[in-house]
């Protein structure tokens, strides 16, 4: 079985547009002076962390050098905003029992970017019995476990056991997914596969389940014009072995793009002139689009080459490993 041959031209244009918009929007990702004290982490650290996560991946794995360069520049910018990691020492000292500083730090640590004091702090805080107490849901715990792995810490729980408790591992009835549950499933896949770097971690059972039901979820959330979620579902699709290429879905997502290369989260692009508002309304889905189109491009190349997909680990921070000889 071979995967679906994609449309590299379309996929590349989406990465190009998204990266271009992200470049133009750098200033909105900058951290304010009160980022570790009064600022809302959801409006500051979260966007920066997401930018870092996905540009790191694109910077290593996208087949086209010009996209890798742009992405690497954005990733370097993100690291710069953390003041070479000093931010994490401050964050952890300020909120030693919160998981998000560790999750954020892991994004950079996987690429070899570390801060000595932050390392020492996380080494202590993540050994606490208290650290094993789940602060959020199981999906989030998968993310924390992934961060621990990236940093080189001992994982505080068995990821297989946690996975079984998630919306993905529980293999729910596909018609029982609402928006919240659908986002849970996409993130379960991202944490499990390290954002598509280790697609083979998807078991055949989970892959089969996703292959069956992704088309119905995609169809639904495209109809609702939730481009953000649709993009994530497309990213998940690209993680499947012999990944199919849902051409119509990609075309619909492409149709949602604004002229400036951004993709709105829902519906039509905001017409508000307020640039900060426009940023908040678009940055997430624009990032997701770049991410999904990168994974889909990789999957499409694999299908083109006739190689079996999903049997090559593409660890963070390194280029693709030697692939096995195609059968």
């Amino acid at each position: 079985m071979t995967g679906g041959r994609g449309d590299p031209g379309l996929l590349d244009s989406m990465v190009h547009g998204s990266l271009g918009w992200l470049e133009e929007s750098r200033d909105f990702f900058r951290l304010p002076p009160n980022v570790t004290t009064d600022a809302d982490p959801n409006l500051t650290l979260k966007p920066l962390g997401e930018l870092a996560e996905l540009t790191q991946l694109i910077g290593v794995l996208h087949p086209r050098d010009e996209f890798r360069q742009t992405a690497r520049g954005l990733f370097a910018f993100a690291w710069n905003e953390t003041r070479d990691g000093e931010l994490f020492a401050e964050l952890i000292r300020g909120e030693p029992f919160a998981t998000y500083p560790v999750e954020l730090y892991g994004v950079f640590a996987q690429a070899g970017l570390r801060h000595a004091e932050a390392d020492a702090l996380v080494d202590t805080t993540t050994r606490l019995r208290g650290w094993r107490v789940a602060r959020e849901d199981h999906t989030r715990t998968l993310g924390v476990l992934n961060a621990e792995r990236r940093i080189g810490l001992r994982q505080h729980a068995d990821s297989g056991a946690v996975l079984a408790l998630t919306g993905l591992g529980g293999l729910p009835e596909p018609w029982a997914l609402d928006r919240k549950a659908a986002y849970g499933v996409t993130h379960d896949v991202f944490h499990l596969t390290d954002w598509g770097r280790n697609r083979q971690r998807l078991s055949p059972e989970l892959a089969g389940y996703l292959r069956l039901w992704l088309p119905s979820w995609l169809e639904n959330w495209l109809e609702e014009q939730l481009w953000d979620l649709a993009g994530e579902l497309l990213a998940v699709t690209a993680c499947l072995p012999q990944a199919p290429y849902p051409a119509q879905a990609w075309q619909r997502l492409a149709g949602a793009r604004a002229a400036d290369g951004s993709v709105p989260e829902i519906g039509a692009a905001p017409s508000s002139g307020d640039r900060a508002e426009a940023f908040t309304a678009c940055y997430h889905s624009t990032l997701v689009t770049a991410f999904a189109a990168t994974l889909a491009r990789i999957a499409s190349d694999e299908a083109e080459a006739g190689r079996p997909a999903g049997d090559t680990a593409m660890a963070g921070g390194r280029t693709s490993c030697e692939s096995e000889t195609a059968p």
Binding site: W175, L212, W213, S216, E219
Partner: peptide, 20 residues
């Protein structure tokens, strides 16, 4: 059959109980 199953999922999500 798989496509009809997908249709079932879609119909339930739309709250189109007769179709489902």
């Amino acid at each position: 059959t798989d496509d009809l199953a997908r249709g079932f999922v879609r119909a339930v999500r739309r709250r189109d109980w007769l179709q489902a």
